[in-house]
Design a protein around this nucleic acid. Sequence first.
DNA 1: TCGCTGACTAAGCGCTTGCTCAGCATGGTG
DNA 2: CACCATGCTGAGCAAGCGCTTAGTCAGCGA
Lengths: 208, 208
Amino acid sequence: MTSTPMADLWPTLPGADTRPEAAYRLLQAAVESFAERGFHATTTRDIATAAGMSPAALYIHYQSKAALLAEISQAGHAATLALVREAVSGEGGPVERMRRLVEQFTAWHARARTVGRVVNYELHALPEDAYAVVAALRLDIEREVSALIGQGATAGDFQVSEVRTAARAVTSLGIDVSRWYTDRSTETPEELGRRYGELVLRMLGARI
Amino acid sequence: MTSTPMADLWPTLPGADTRPEAAYRLLQAAVESFAERGFHATTTRDIATAAGMSPAALYIHYQSKAALLAEISQAGHAATLALVREAVSGEGGPVERMRRLVEQFTAWHARARTVGRVVNYELHALPEDAYAVVAALRLDIEREVSALIGQGATAGDFQVSEVRTAARAVTSLGIDVSRWYTDRSTETPEELGRRYGELVLRMLGARI
DNA sequence: TCGCTGACTAAGCGCTTGCTCAGCATGGTG
DNA sequence: CACCATGCTGAGCAAGCGCTTAGTCAGCGA
């Protein structure tokens, strides 16, 4: 279910990630548990048991429970920013690029909803230094989206009165997907992405 | 700051609410603390201290920490549903009512963002019976929005391919406001509401 | 065969948690 | 005055928390 998105974040290619398999299992268990119950309601025993180990084994691979959260949050944000950058700097005009951005951003938040929940809703539990890193990544994401809307507006492709508000709305729609999307949702992540793409383009006043 | 929305949820009119003032103070402290740190990271000592009491005093007014959360969540959802019903069943055509709905829904989630965070992001911490009540209220909210979009679509005022997806997007936009809106936001809740109203109407294909 | 290393566990430490309870001050009532 | 209900506190209990420690054991190079 979430194995594909997880693999996207922490590549298991030989040489690309030297992390032992046990550390990877702990990471996966932590994502699942943090997403379902939240960071503070998750115990180190939960994570270790789900990874098939004793609680003490966690501390061989990670400094603390919070370090696990920091790792997940930073990798998740980095992956999201990469996705956004790829769409924004891709081929085509503002309309085409915005459509691709929303499609990918939305589909990612549906597909990787467990990681997405940790990334977007457990920020307050991050240690201060990890939070600073993540906050910078979030700002970058917002700036990329704003820049694309700005380009479209000056090119006459979009009609928006406030670029920042429009950018907020676009990212907001995608982020919130990770809150409500479930296994039982009838739309596939890709279908949802296409539909949200349409809605956003109309919202931005694009003639389509 | 949040005192006005709080008063909306738990009226202090003489006779309307027989709750002792101390219980009200505990409620307010709990909302603030749950919103900032989350339910599980909040201790009963946090709440009691913020309300100017010893931890034991909490249990004179509420059965448990979870009972406080249940009270907040149910009152918050009830208030939101009332707001939605008032807008949906108000005067005017679908376009006019949708604009008012989004304006009010958005402004509420900005103004009452502390309550809003508890309402939308602490559902998983609710005891099972309280969750059932709240889930029913959430379903009602979604149904009201869907019904209005459906009306507008059949009347030819909206162009939407999937009513459910469109309804999701509309409520999603409003809910997510409680996540990101802060004291430092430059837009007032009402300004934000008006702008989101415009964006949503365009998203729904209304000719405006 | 040997000593060493890295991954792991059983046990448990010190602390915090949600919650309880005996008792105290207050103010209204006979 | 006595009486008691009410609202609260100080002290503290049992359980559970994150994390540590001492020790086990398979695998490996010399």
